[in-house]
Amino acid sequence: MTTTAPLCEAAPSAGLVIRRPRRLTAAMVEERDDRSRQEPAERARVRDLALVARTRDRDAFRRLFEHYGPRVKAYLRRLGADEDAAEDLTQEVFVSIWRRAAQFDPAKASVSTWVYTIARNKRIDSLRRDRTVLGEGDELDLEVDPAPCGDAVAEFNQMSARIMRAVETLPEEQKRLLKIFYFDEKPHSTIAAELGLPLGTVKSRLRLAIGKLRALLGDDRE
């Protein structure tokens, strides 16, 4: 636990509150370039969602389904849903997207984050529905708004751009571990066995990858 480290260029957002870096570094300029490279695809998806919201545009919705449907399914399969359950839940996710398209705010989250959040919530919802006495359609109040409020928005945008970039630039192995961590919900020991690595190695590499992302978020520990 450190309380001593002052803000420095290498860790622009250390500390409990996420602070805006003071000076533009080379990495940030690069990041901006990178973001503008990503923009067309994201812009197209934002536009499609807006079309769905405003005019119930089926073609736009189909484009979103074709891009995200197989990804949502892969996410659900990796987390243990069988083929049929993954198909059914993917359908539910997209009915939700159809219903809620008007609630999407591009200033607050990327389309992929928004879709991820809905898929995550649907999955948790279905797990609990299986276990409890809740009836069909008795949706749990799981709405976690992916959007921070007010002043946090600008910082959040910077932060999520940094995260997107950070994920892209992680070494392949760490990226794979992160994906396993996020999407496979396996005990670390199973991951280790599958990768043929000692358990300690998996734990420390996973910590390393998360640590890098944490540094970008501004470490929470004081």
Partner: peptide, 25 residues
Amino acid sequence: EARARFAACLALGGALLEEVEPEPL
């Protein structure tokens, strides 16, 4: 403040969703 941090964690999920190997429907 927690929601802002959590939003970033969800953004990581979003980034990984783009990276995941798609499974044909």
